[in-house]
Design a protein around this nucleic acid. Structure first.
Ligand SMILES: NC(=O)c1ccc[n+]([C@@H]2O[C@H](COP(=O)([O-])OP(=O)(O)OC[C@H]3O[C@@H](n4cnc5c(N)ncnc54)[C@H](O)[C@@H]3O)[C@@H](O)[C@H]2O)c1
Ligand SMILES: NC(=O)c1ccc[n+]([C@@H]2O[C@H](COP(=O)([O-])OP(=O)(O)OC[C@H]3O[C@@H](n4cnc5c(N)ncnc54)[C@H](O)[C@@H]3O)[C@@H](O)[C@H]2O)c1
Lengths: 207, 207
DNA sequence: CTAACTTTGTGAAGAATTTCACAAGCCCCC
DNA sequence: GGGGGCTTGTGAAATTCTTCACAAAGTTAG
């Protein structure tokens, strides 16, 4: 399959969110035009995005809401549930562990780890925090595909190593650090301070 | 000034973070090559990014770490402190309110608002949570340029309206909603579920 | 059944971004 | 003070991404 740009995948996720809303409302079909508005883009862009994966629409009518949503879930890999572990049960890690939006999308938090004895043993939304020392041992059982890193920046890279070795294939990092992983392991970083800085740039350069 | 791509601004922020690390280590100069590695890009890209704003380097030598960091802070609008309010003192709002990384970059949380009486009156990192009903009255005093939205998705848009009317010019939104704001107001969204979905896409399509 | 209308799918054009590649500038050493 | 060695700054080329624009296909109404 041809390489698909991240911007395209991002838009597909937005389309899917909107389609699921429409599904709830019992709407049956939707045009690329309306779908475009929902994601802040253009109808041509929507059609082009979808065309990478096939042709799902009916000319003169639009797309079947349920069929397109189903297809997008497959494309995005959301047909199956994913097992997720969270490393770092601090403020942001705890918030994420209790966040309903993940489970709703098929991301199941199956384990939480922390190195602080004061945090170990606590339960967050039904999952007990384990000691980081048990990481490798427990991952053998849990077999998560994805890890969320919410630890201080200076230990993030070493955890990437350990997680990778234990078979984790995707990492979502919240620490402000540039991380490196071997081929076959995908690392994405969410950097909130950086988002504020982009805002700061925009405000400072207005007009 | 010519329009600068968001991807460029994003990289400038990364360069700045690395430069500040180097400043701490007392390093005096740095080449585009080394700077590139830090941000996961190429030396040509670094030089091109910087060239939009002038020429700061010395051929044969590289860039002065302190001078470039200073210049980047100016470019990014970090020369001045920004006043920030957080709307929604829930799990993620509370985590952000207590996050040290924001203050370190000159983003000062000066107010927190919530509509839940149980949350009002609590203190997070020295700032007391106010009743949302007091929003307009208190914003007149606080005059924040930036608001962080950590409320449920279905009330996010109406808060954009109120904040905009009260003079806020930049909004960082964490709710999974596509928001619209008038010209002159910048809205950025951080969508964590979407980040996981992009990861999911990558894992599902590997090789 | 036909005609008017709507909307898709997609090449081709256009715009934006990244990479290439190299002349020019500066440092350092002899 | 000249030469060798680095590294910048930047046009030009290459690549990637978005928009345009329209034929083809389907719908709806009469
Ligand atoms: N709080 C926020 O709003 C926020 C925002 C953006 C980024 N971040 C980043 O997220 C990370 C966590 O932030 P936080 O505010 O939750 O901090 P925190 O101090 O509340 O949490 C960090 C947790 O990691 C644990 N930890 C430390 N070393 C560990 C290790 N080697 N293995 C496992 N766990 C370990 C600590 O015990 C602690 O529980 C930091 O890198 C921070 O920069 C936080
Ligand atoms: N918790 C997470 O890890 C996480 C991750 C990604 C996105 N989000 C999003 O962030 C938002 C908040 O999530 P949360 O987990 O902190 O939820 P939460 O329920 O803990 O917090 C929401 C807070 O907003 C307050 N609130 C509700 N309506 C309000 C209004 N009109 N004005 C002011 N405050 C109001 C509530 O009282 C509550 O304190 C949601 O949109 C959620 O989807 C959360």
């Amino acid at each position: 399959m041809k390489h698909i740009a991240e911007s395209t995948v991002r838009r597909l996720s937005l389309y899917l969110r909107f389609l699921e809303e429409l599904e709830g409302q019992g709407r049956e079909t939707i045009s690329s035009e309306v779908l475009a508005d929902s994601g802040g883009t253009t109808s041509a862009q929507v059609r082009k995005d979808l065309s990478f994966f096939g042709s799902f629409g009916k000319r003169g009518l639009g797309y079947s809401v349920t069929a397109l949503a189903k297809r997008l879930r497959e494309i995005l890999g959301l047909g199956q549930p994913w097992q997720v572990v969270i490393i770092g049960a601090g403020k942001i890690g705890a918030a994420l562990a209790q966040y309903r939006g993940f489970r709703a999308r098929g991301f199941h938090v199956v384990g939480i780890f922390d190195s602080d004895p004061a945090k170990v043993g606590r339960t967050l939304d039904g999952v007990t925090v384990s000691d980081l020392a048990q990481l490798e041992r427990e991952l053998k059982q849990l077999k998560p595909q994805i890890a969320v890193l919410t630890v201080p920046a200076d230990v993030a890279q070493e955890l990437v190593q350990r997680l990778t070795k234990a078979g984790v294939r995707g990492i979502l990092n919240f620490a402000p650090a540039t991380l490196h992983a071997p081929d076959g392991v995908t690392v994405r970083s969410v950097n909130m301070a950086l988002e504020l800085e982009i805002l700061s740039y925009a405000l400072a350069h207005e007009r």
